[in-house]
Amino acid sequence: MNRRHLEQQVALCAMYGALVMVVVSLLLIIGVTVLRGGHVLVTRPEVVVTPPGPRYLLGGGGGFVHAILGSLYLVLPATLLASGIAMGIALYLQSDYTSRRTAGAIRNLLDALWGTPSIVYGMFVLTILISLQQRASLLAGIAALTLLEIPIIARYADAAVQAVPPMAKETSYALGTTRWENSQVVIRYALPGIATGVLIGLGRGIGDAASVIFTAGAGNNMPSGLLEGVTALPVLIFQQASSFYPSVREQAYAASFVLIVIVLVLNVASRLVTNYFARYIPGGR
């Protein structure tokens, strides 16, 4: 065996090492969450459905159903809003509506916004709240999450819209459709990609704590109105994780179990939904 092949073998070993490292870290993260959280959920399953008691974060009794509800109330409207706005942007980026240059500039901007740390969105909405002398509320949390999700969904939708075969659009134009009617054909074609984007946006939104921790309130009450404070599951996990009380820390493990299950379900759902919507496309399943 000469030097060149030895080098090849060494490189291959390094690659296997890297692969194992990545796989192990993923398994470790899911495994630890499932084991520790699952253990708590098996011994105290009631924490998922009970509202928090008094002095909840200080070791008082109760569960975290308020955070699960809060997360849903925050994320569902935010995703709905963001999807609508993102769809409009993605359709507008077609060459039917705007020049290639403008579209390129807006795409760059969306990419920059996508990479913006979520805490920046949180601080942005918080500064607006302070200027308006408002308290943190469900509404402000929804606004912050919407801002966070728009670039993600818009870029996925945009990629899907760009991949629509020109022939489909031309056929539709040849029948005398307007651009708006044509867009409805485009949406049909792009639906699998759009659905993936929406679910990824949803997953990102439900797991994000930094954007809602100041804007939504982070109190321990049941969600009670649009202008009242709520807390979200990741925010609660963050607060509980470093707690002095073991019983509180255990609730954080249980809550992250719930969170990771939601995220994994969304991941599977995005595959299923993509396959389902592919039936609108000739040649799709």
Partner: peptide
Amino acid sequence: FIGVLAGIPSVVFGICALL
């Protein structure tokens, strides 16, 4: 696998880091 890893919320990473 990578898709799943990309979707895990950062607080869950935080919990695992603590544990």
